[in-house]
Design a protein around this nucleic acid. Sequence first.
DNA 1: CACCAGGCAAGCC
DNA 2: GGCTTGCATGGT
Length: 292
Amino acid sequence: MYTMEIKYEGGNIILTDVPDFDLRHIFDCGQAFRFDRESDGSYFGAAFGHALKISQNGRDVMLHSTTEQEFNEIWYKFFDLDRDYGKIKSSLAHDDVMRQATEYGYGIRILKQELWETIISFIISASNNIPRIKGIIERLCANFGNEISYMGKTCFSFPTPERLAALTGSELSVIRAGFRDKYILDAARKIAGGEMSLDYIRSLPTPEAKAELMKINGVGNKVSDCILLFGLNRADSFPVDVWIRRIMEHCYFGREASIKEVSELACEKFGELGGFAQQYLFFWARDNKIGT
DNA sequence: CACCAGGCAAGCC
DNA sequence: GGCTTGCATGGT
């Protein structure tokens, strides 16, 4: 049995004996764009309007300069510390592919991110690459977010729908998002204007939530699946991007396969654990250039 | 210089 | 329904 302990010491939260947890796996598997590795191996970023430095030594994890209240209200849920990932991995590791993928990314956790932020982040991800996605989101926050003072540094929160809805296309062009500008504005205006409700979307069953999200211009099949998985905690969602398609073709089909075929096989093989399987596969395949 | 990057929408049949 | 093409920007 795992025996994770939570202590509050010297203004930091210290977790000991954290199971299935690795910062590089968590932040480099492509689910979050606002946390970066520092030269000392720690990660620095922001979520839910709060900044965080987090570091790890083996199974011990430190959340720097954080209160118990903030940990309980934000970071405990954000890092999905409630969930038994050992059980998930053993349920998935029924073939050689998933055995390798779950062993390689053993410390992956699916972060529970803010819904609004995932909508905009994955709109930006379309036909883009991860370094540039990060750059665009950084400029979005620096220009239109609120200042956060933390550990002697200044960083920025993710801008609200209201803030972005008030912008013109040319004002938004400073973030250099290209053709995605109009999609970002469409999302912000639908939500800030009350035409679309995030709380209502949260309350919907997955298929209905997906249909509602796809009313936003720039949110299609794949982007909506990412929003469902990362922003709405729908772990059965299996986003099929070019990487997942290639790895599934290479490892399971042995031929080219359509997105629909890939989705159907994932549903069959992984079922309600599809989202976890997707993250293990994505991290493993990209790091090892499998299927390329 | 082409070609592509966690896709999508619009325009075709 | 499925299949093509243009799309902004930046990197190789």
